[in-house]
Amino acid sequence: MQVVADEKQVGELVAALADKVREAMAASSEPWAIVGVRSRGDVIAQRLAETLKPRYTGSVDIALYRDDLSEIGPQPTVRITEIDFPMDEVNVLLVDDVVMTGRSTRAALQVLMDFGRPRCIRFAVLVDRGGRELPIAPDFVGLTMTPEADQTVEVHVRPTDDADEIVVFERQPSRSTQPTEADA
């Protein structure tokens, strides 16, 4: 396992990401909502919200919206989706930790649309590692990486994990029953 960014560098990447988003948020007079994808995108979203102070915050769980539910064996754990604001007519900043295939992003977009009709959705991600299988492109990226196809990139954040870091490791040959976020 190789550490690409430590706690300090993760903090800098989040701060830089916040700066990129701030400009876009200021350009719209409509209220913003910052919504993270569980279970690590929501932590990044929370940190962005602390500095950007949007009108609303929330989190989405995509377990029920995955396109591979029948293929992955035991059902993934369903967590709570928290959207406590009217989705209609707000600008949404969707936040995730890593984007790879784009499939979890597609699922998250569908969750958001099931709550209403936002004015627009922008997508911010801490790490874009490439490997897209769907036409999904983040609007704001903290770090762009080009790892090998058999490598997994993970963002670890407190309190979900024990430390703040970005790591790269060789993927296990056998597919686990609970795929990592990057697989989704």
Partner: peptide
């Protein structure tokens, strides 16, 4: 019960359906 907690909000959404 924890899984049910994740489903509880579906009935409050604009679209009261998930594709699971």
């Amino acid at each position: 019960l924890r899984t049910a907690r994740g489903f509880a909000d579906v009935s409050t959404r604009s679209v009261k359906k998930v594709p699971a």
